[in-house]
Write a protein that binds this DNA or RNA. Structure first.
Length: 523
RNA sequence: GGGUUAUUAGCUCAACGGUAGAGCAGCUGACUCUUAAUCAGUUGGUUCCGAGUUCGAAUCUCGGAUAACCCA
């Protein structure tokens, strides 16, 4: 098939003197080319607009309004008489009356042959008049047409009609050759359009609230701000290893030290971890930090943001109705665990022995967990996470896993609880995570701005690292130095944008919302 | 990391130990007719790769690749 197309390409070039990759309007013998090209660029109409503008054109009627359209041919009936032309907005039918085709820069005789050389997949420009066929299909009746790009490979069949199982369904091809997926699966195009709108919506929301967007380093000498294994790369002239960032947190908080009070960054994050329907090695997050605020403010902001992006108080996600009506549930992790398992793992009431015993009763492998808090977290992950279908803020994270958050007795994520941090042994981090449909969507806390506490927390992480925990947070002396200059008390929030888009576009896999997901090469 | 499943023509799939097939696409022709156009004819294969069992393998066995899903 490819050979056939190449043959046609050569025919066009040699017999017609047309290079089907150039704007052949330029080569017109009629001398009108430049003028026509200008006209084309300024007057081209999108398919949806034609349908809108000529809605009332009666059957069989021909409008006198000269119209330009362009797009890809996806279907061809009656030997080129009817073409289905698709642009970004949809389909418009082209009607070619061979006997009526006038010459533009090629004469009518040649047009006949030109029609025969058109293939599915070719991108063409059409100059003609709106026309509703006797059968009622709004079309463009061609006066002249030009090949703008010859397709050597045919496009997969476009799916508009489910009556037969065709089109491109192989997920592997859809991910590897996403352009084909976009070309023929309208709902895929719709998802990514929505993605662009959501990201724009986040920017608009934050900008309205006075946040400033910044760009912080992706290449870092120390990959901090989260618990994850980083990718390592090498800088040749500095002759040193660098890490790809696993979070934007520590640099954004340096901006708070510098005096900005509301900052955010939307950007790519890299984590050297497994791939699943919820994980891609590179993904997009938005992190924001607000001075003179706390975790409470961050929860409210999260609600406001997501509700605005959803544009509806109830959405349907993979068969579940998700009620987004504010305020969303806020619950302590230990209360939630008790609710689900009937066992009390609250650090205040539960000894390490009891916690281990209870975990065993629940048949939960505690693995490396050494404290009540860590066991609580394991039980939560095992027993509760998947059940959090409706939006839920989970509070009261064990401090061991939250080295960048304030620690308090009550973990209400409110600033006034900080004063109780002296008796750290019985404490939770002032941290929350948002779950919807069992998926972690956001993570926020009242930021730790005490450099001494921060250093202690880093040193505790260092010990874990020494024990072989590759996800433990590295000691970042430079960040501690920044805190020593003083960071205002602040709230911080991170949202996984891909997962948020999954939720809002009703997508089951993160790969359905990432245009080019990470794949192993075929050879 | 473990398990399950899949990989056959450009696309969607069949053939389940006995000559590798269909629909669509492509090509040739008919038809100013259509919208899944139709009609007639027709081309097209390293059955993901490699080894084994067998008279005979797309099919059974083993190994590998890639992917999807589930579990950790």
């Amino acid at each position: 098939m490819r050979e056939e197309r190449i043959h046609k390409y050569n025919l066009l070039k040699n017999s017609f003197k047309i290079d089907p990759y150039l704007l052949n309007l330029e080569d017109s013998e009629a001398g009108l080319s430049k003028q026509l090209w200008q006209e084309f660029k300024t007057k081209r109409i999108l398919a949806t607009d034609i349908h809108k503008n000529f809605e009332n054109l009666a059957q069989g009627d021909l409008s006198e309004e000269i119209t330009w359209v362009a797009g890809r041919i996806h279907n061809n009936r009656n030997s080129g008489m009817f073409l289905d032309l698709y642009d970004e907005t949809g389909k418009i039918q082209i009607v070619n009356e061979r006997t009526e085709l006038e010459g533009g820069y090629h004469n009518a005789e040649e047009d006949k042959h030109l029609l025969d050389l058109l293939d599915k997949g070719d991108i063409i420009a059409v100059y003609g008049k709106p026309y509703r066929t006797p059968r009622g299909e709004l079309s463009i009746k061609t006066i002249d047409l030009w090949i703008l790009s010859k397709a050597i490979l045919p496009p997969p069949e476009i799916i508009e009609n489910k009556r037969r199982r065709l089109g491109l369904t192989d997920v592997e091809v859809r991910y590897r050759e996403r352009y084909l997926d976009l070309m023929v699966n309208p709902q895929v195009k719709e998802t990514f359009k929505r993605r662009a709108e959501i990201v724009l919506g986040i920017r608009q929301f934050l900008n309205e609230k006075g946040f400033l967007e910044f760009e912080t380093p992706i290449l870092q000498t120390s990959a901090g701000g989260a618990a994850a294994r980083p990718f390592v790369t090498h800088h040749n002239t500095l002759n040193m290893n660098l890490y790809l960032r696993i979070a934007t947190e520590l640099h954004l908080k340096r901006l708070l030290v510098g005096g900005f009070e509301k900052v955010y960054e939307i950007g790519r994050i890299f984590r050297n971890e497994g791939i699943s329907t919820k994980h891609n090695p590179e993904f997009t997050s938005v992190e924001l930090y607000q001075a003179y605020a706390d975790g409470q403010d961050m929860m409210q902001l999260t609600e406001d943001l997501i509700c605005r992006l959803a544009q509806s108080e109830e959405i349907e996600h993979l068969g579940e109705k998700i009620n987004l009506q504010k305020p969303w549930r806020r619950v302590q992790m230990s209360d939630l665990v008790q609710e689900v398992t009937g066992k009390d793992f609250d650090i205040a009431n539960c000894s390490l022995e009891q916690a281990k015993q209870q975990a065993q009763e629940l048949k939960i492998e505690i693995g490396s967990a050494q404290t009540v808090g860590e066991i609580l977290y394991k039980v939560f992950e095992e027993k509760c996470e998947a059940k959090l279908i409706q939006p839920t803020f989970v509070l009261g994270y064990p401090w061991e896993d939250s080295p960048l958050a304030f620690v308090s007795a009550n973990s209400t994520c409110s600033m006034k609880d900080q004063e109780t941090q002296n008796t750290r042994e019985a404490k939770y981090a002032e941290r929350f995570e948002l779950f919807i449909y069992g998926r972690e969507l956001a993570n926020g806390f009242t930021e730790l701005n005490n450099p001494f506490r921060q250093k202690e927390a880093f040193l505790a992480q260092q010990k874990l690292k020494d024990k072989g925990n590759e996800e433990a947070h590295p000691l970042d002396e430079d960040y501690i130095k920044a805190l020593e200059f003083g960071m205002p008390p602040s709230g911080g929030l991170g949202i996984g944008i891909d997962r948020l888009i999954m939720l809002l576009t009703n997508s089951a896999s993160i790969r359905d919302v990432i245009l080019f997901p990470t794949m192993k090469p075929l050879v």
